[in-house]
Amino acid sequence: MTGEVLAFSLFSAMAVGGAGLALFHRSAIHSAFALLASFLGVAGLYLNLGADFLAVTQVLLYAGGILVLYLFGLMLVPPEGEAPRPGRRALALVLAAAPVAIFLIAFLARSSWGDPSRLPEPEGTVRGIGLALLTPDGWLVPFEYASILLLAALVGAVHLARRSAPKDDSP
């Protein structure tokens, strides 16, 4: 068992286990914290795939930003109300998730994607990503679109949050 396999097992167990815990845990806050394990596991998988910049971004943005935002949201609203009925959840799992899972895994099992005989050595990716994002023949335009998207989302979020604060009847 090489280190890579060990790391993969550990991180994928974290990712999938965290996601499963988030799905099945009855408490809203607990499932949000379980998501932390899932996000960190995915960050570990990124590391395993040689994407170090992405792994750190995952930790910074998901664990430090998005998850904090969700926890804040969970504290501002009341809990889910009555405890979710187990039957309902099982039904949802069977109807929504199981077919997708079966289809995906069967598809993957039958796929013909072979692994390359030799993987490129992982190396630092910061320079490559930076150059790709900021050169006009690279990804500069999508990068700027992304910033416009973020700005629009931010303005929209501020607008929604502001309108909800005072009860204001003006259209």
């Binding site: 994928s12 990712a15 999938v16 996601a19 809203a28 899932s38 799992l93 998730a97």
Partner: peptide, 23 residues
């Protein structure tokens, strides 16, 4: 494929959460 299976499981968990959670 191992990574893809992990991704598939994550996706299924997410979908099930969308379908079943009450908040």
């Amino acid at each position: 494929v191992a990574y893809l299976v992990v991704a598939a499981l994550l996706m299924v968990a997410g979908l099930a959460m969308v379908a079943s959670r009450r908040s």
